[in-house]
Design a binder for these strands. Structure first.
Lengths: 236, 236
DNA sequence: TGGGTAAACTAACACAGGTTGGCGCGCGGT
DNA sequence: ACCGCGCGCCAACCTGTGTTAGTTTACCCA
């Protein structure tokens, strides 16, 4: 069973065995467990470490004074939060655990060491960063111009691919350990409407979501419903 | 009258005179003019050059098969599109001119040359890139959780600061050379509703938008209305 | 095995924002 | 000076999604 982090980087670059060993080393030190619903990094903190998600799901979110919450990114196992973030000090948002989460805390020095003399790793981290930006752009388009059902279908398609590449999906069935209010905050809707939309996706025979697991019944249909084009996720 | 590009980088790092000269040099070669409503970079192109906006406004946008358009970023004078994008080949979106635009086309080699031996420039480009990501996150939060009037107020506040830092705002009055349908596509609404919202902002005495120029009548009020916290735009 | 609790689910109603269609101004071109 | 047309603007109507207020289900712990 291979490391999701290594698997994901290998989509972008060819890694030598020593590259792989270096990466696995990063993922073994400084392990920390965070309970579900707890912050991994507070909203105004001054982060020093980068976090590598080893297990569980987390999110970046912004919270408004009146309590409204916007989830601006989902962080899955193998995702690295801001490998180069040490260049910017103050957090303008927070990182929270959606489920119980295991992370490795990595220092800027460790990253610098891992990158030094290992161009493949640097290139891989770079491409991951660019892919993350592409996901941000797609989310803006989604929340701005997709309907409720398109948005949900699109998100499911994205997560299907991301989890597949991390080695965490079982063909067409994937873990989905988040609540409906979480999905609502990620898609800019209410949990009530997420529920309605889920029902519609189910009754159209596209997906089934049960006991924290999503099963895609009709992948092509789902992609069509969500106007999903995987181009934005693909490596160059 | 100083270069907006140089001004913006100087918000992040201290530049030596030779740094400045290098940057000004980048902005002088390979000038290209693009008419309004034309693409600077097509939706599936394989870009080689980075574009530095010298004059006019542009945007990144995604277009759906049925014609819906989502503007996912606004590019103002002094903005550099993807300084490091040469690492990723295929465009998953397009870059279009909203007004007539003047750009400098910059090759990866030129960027590498400018960065070599000039750590301040590299650091500055980095921070600009991180700031861009922060803007993306804020837009996701905006479209996801802000109401129509909050969204528009927030965008105006953001543009006010960005243009001020580029040296293009006149105190509390700024150029706003985009149409209402453009604003609608940027904020995930319809132009009709943008118009309604604009009227509301006007009648509350917050802003006036006339002949492509926005005048902010009550900056504090506008920021409050848009739940605007400039933290996400600030350098570390 | 039951009781507490968080999440899933639903129905009824409310409203923000979308849709359609139309009017008129202002500006660029001839 | 006139024409054309994109854009700003507006009104009436419509609908997708939000709101409120539950009931039901599933699961954890005593």
């Amino acid at each position: 069973m291979e490391n999701p982090f290594v698997r994901k980087l290998e989509r972008h670059v060819r890694l030598a065995p020593e590259d792989r060993a270096t990466l696995v080393g990063l993922a073994r030190q400084n392990i920390r467990h965070v309970a579900g619903r707890q912050d991994i990094e507070g909203p105004h903190s001054d982060p020093y470490h980068t976090h590598l998600i080893l297990d569980g799901w987390a999110c970046r979110y912004k919270q408004f004074p009146d309590g409204r919450r916007a989830i601006v990114a989902l962080l899955l196992p193998g995702d690295l939060c801001d490998p180069f973030a040490f260049r910017r000090a103050r957090m303008d948002h927070a990182i929270g655990a959606l489920t119980p989460v295991t992370v490795a805390r990595i220092t800027p020095e460790q990253i610098a060491d891992a990158v030094r003399g290992r161009p493949a790793i640097e290139e891989g981290l770079w491409r991951e960063t660019l892919a993350t930006t592409a996901i941000h752009r797609e989310w803006i388009a989604s929340v701005g111009r997709r309907s409720a059902i398109e948005r949900l279908a699109h998100l499911f398609c994205e997560l299907h691919l991301r989890l597949t590449w991390a080695g965490l999906a079982d063909g067409t069935s994937l873990p989905m350990p988040v609540t409906q209010p979480d999905l609502a905050d990620a898609l800019g809707q209410t949990s009530v409407h997420i529920n309605r939309t889920l029902k519609e996706l189910r009754s159209s025979g596209l997906v089934v979501l049960r006991s924290r697991r999503l099963t895609i019944r009709d992948l092509d249909g789902l992609r069509e419903r969500g106007l999903f084009d995987p181009a934005y996720l693909l490596p160059a």
